[in-house]
Write a protein that binds this DNA or RNA. Sequence first.
DNA 1: TTGTAAGCGTTATCAT
DNA 2: ATGATAACGCTTACAA
Lengths: 338, 338
Amino acid sequence: MTSLADVARAAGVAVSTASRVLNGSTHPISAATRARVIEAATRLGYSPSALARALVSRTSRLVGVLVSDIVNPYFSVIARGADDVASRAGYVTMLSNVDRRTTTEINRLRTMRDYRAAGVIFAGSGHVDDPQADDLAKAVREAREQGIHSVSLTARDLGCQVITADSQAAAYEITEYLISLGHRRIAFIEGPPGMIANRERTDGFLACMSDADLAAEAQCLPGGFDYEAGHAAAMRLIARPPLPHAVLAANDEAAVGALAALRQAGIDVPGEVSVAGIDDLRVARFVGLTTVSLPLYEMGAMAARHIVDNPPCAGGDTTTTVLSHRLIARETTAPRPG
Amino acid sequence: MTSLADVARAAGVAVSTASRVLNGSTHPISAATRARVIEAATRLGYSPSALARALVSRTSRLVGVLVSDIVNPYFSVIARGADDVASRAGYVTMLSNVDRRTTTEINRLRTMRDYRAAGVIFAGSGHVDDPQADDLAKAVREAREQGIHSVSLTARDLGCQVITADSQAAAYEITEYLISLGHRRIAFIEGPPGMIANRERTDGFLACMSDADLAAEAQCLPGGFDYEAGHAAAMRLIARPPLPHAVLAANDEAAVGALAALRQAGIDVPGEVSVAGIDDLRVARFVGLTTVSLPLYEMGAMAARHIVDNPPCAGGDTTTTVLSHRLIARETTAPRPG
DNA sequence: TTGTAAGCGTTATCAT
DNA sequence: ATGATAACGCTTACAA
C-alpha cells in the first residue's frame, strides 16, 4: 500500500505539501509542485487511507442505516435511497439489521460512533411506550456531542431530525377513498402491536371512520406487517360472516395476504369485497393492489443528503420534514354495487 | 470522547497496560491492575476507536457487500445472511449497490480497501465476456495483497473464493420436473442478456430439454429478471399460439409476471399451462409458485463467515463451495392432462 | 509557496 | 507485571 509519505518522497516534497494538493485544500501551491505530486500519486496508484483521514479529522465518510430487516422491501427501498445519495457523495453506507430491538439499535449506534460515522439513519419505527426509548435518546444525544448526525424516518422521540411521511394521513385518505366508493363496513388489519408505525395507521383509519360517522362499522383485527398475518386475519373474517365491504391492511404485504385468502375462498375481489394496503411496494404493482404510495426512497435519500451536506452536527436540529404521499387506485377496489 | 489515555490516567497506569487489559491480550496482568483499569473504563464509558484500532492493526472489522440492487429480494436475502453473521461476530456491514456495472464494482472495492475492510462479498453475477473483468480481477488481487478477502457468490472469474449455488443444475432440475409432469413444449423466459447468471440458467434448461430429446420443443424468449419482462414475454407467447405446455422463467419475479399475464388473458394456470420460476423468493410463496429454492441466505452467511473467521487473507484461496438447492412444488404446476 | 512537527487513538516492541 | 515509545497514515497549525 502506498502512503502519502511515499508520494511525497517520490515527488520530492514534504508530506504536508503532498497532502495539500491531494485533498483539495485551498492552500496555495505552485503549479509545478502540484503537477509533480499528482504525477507521483497517479504513478504510484496512491489512494488515501480513509481510516487515517477519519482518525485525524474526527469524522468519516460513513453513513449508518439502521433497518428492522433489509429483506422487508419497505426498508430496502429506504436503504437504496440512502445509498444512492451517500455513494454519489463519496460516502459509504453501513447497514445494520436491528429486528425492531431498541437495545440492538443502541448497540449499533455505538458501533457506528466508534467508526466516527458522519451520521446514522433510523429507518425503523420504534415501539409505543418503549422502556428503552430514553436510553436510545441518550445515546443519540451523546452521538450528537461527537458531531454525529441522527435522522429518524418516523416520528419517534429520539431528539433528532425527522424526515418522514404522514402515514396517519395516508391511512386516513385511503379509508376516505374506500368510503367514497360506497363501502361502510370496513375491516382494518392491524400491524404488529406496539409499533408506532402501526398505531399511526390504525389511528388514521379510526379517525376517518369516525369523521364519516362510521365508527360503529369499523372493525380492527390483530394482524402484522407480513403476508401470513394478513392471510390469517382474512381467514378469520371469512369464518365470521357477514363479510365487510372492504378490508384495509396496515401495509401492502398484509393486504396481499388478505387478498390471497379472500380469493382462495372464492370471494370476488373487488366484486364482493374491496382490498387496499399502504406503502406501494413493488408487490402492490404485481397484484394490482390499491394503496397509498409512501415516499420511502426519498426519505432515505433526503436523510442521507442531510448527513452528507451538513458539517459534523451543527447541534440539536430537531426539525420535522414531512414528505408527501399519494393514493394509487388499482384493481382491488371497486364501487359498492347497489 | 474518552480515549485510552484517559482511562489509563484515571486508573493510574500506562496506556500500554490499559490497552492490554481492554483488548483481551494474553499478556500477564495483575488482578488488581486489571480491576482498576476495568473500573475506570466503565466509569468513563470508554469505547475504543475502531478507526485507530484498524489503522494500526491494518485491518478493520468491516465487511463489504456488493449487490446489484438491494431492492431486489434476491440480494437483500444475501445481504441479510451476511449481516447476521458479521454483526454477531462484532463486524459491521458496508453495503453498496453497483447496478451490475463492473467499473462501479471496482471503485467500491477500492473504497472498501481504503477502509481496510476485512473482506468483500461480490453478490452480483457479472457479465459474459466482460471487457472489464480483467481489471476487476486485478483489483481483487491487489486487495488480497493487502490482506482483504474476496468472496464471489457466482462462478465468475475473479480469482477468489467462490461460494455459490449450482443454478444450472437448479434450472435443469426444474425443467426435468416439468417434463415429468408430461409437458413437452416448454418456453423459457430468459433473464437479462449477457449476465452470467442468466446464461447458467438458460444452459440448464437447454441441457435438460436436449437430454430428454425435446430440444425441438424448447423455446427461449428474451426477457429479464423482473416482473415486467416476464409479463411482456408471456404476452408475446399468448399472441402467437399455440401456447406452450409450460413456461419456465429465469427467476421468480419474471415467473410471477408471466403468471399474471397468463391469468389476465383468461388462461388457466396450472390447468392449461404450468408456470415455474427459480430462486424461491418470498413472492413465490405468496402466489404459490413452483420454483427451486436457492440457498441465498446461507451463501451470504457463509461468505461472511469465511471473512470473519479467517485471519487477513491467507492467500489465493480459490476454492469453490457449492451449496445445495431444492425443488419446491407449489400450485402453478400440474400434470399435463391427457 | 513549502516544510516541520504535533497530534488523532490504538497496538506492539522493547526495556525495566 | 508494567511502562516508554515507536509506529499506523493522515491533517493542520506554525514556521520559514
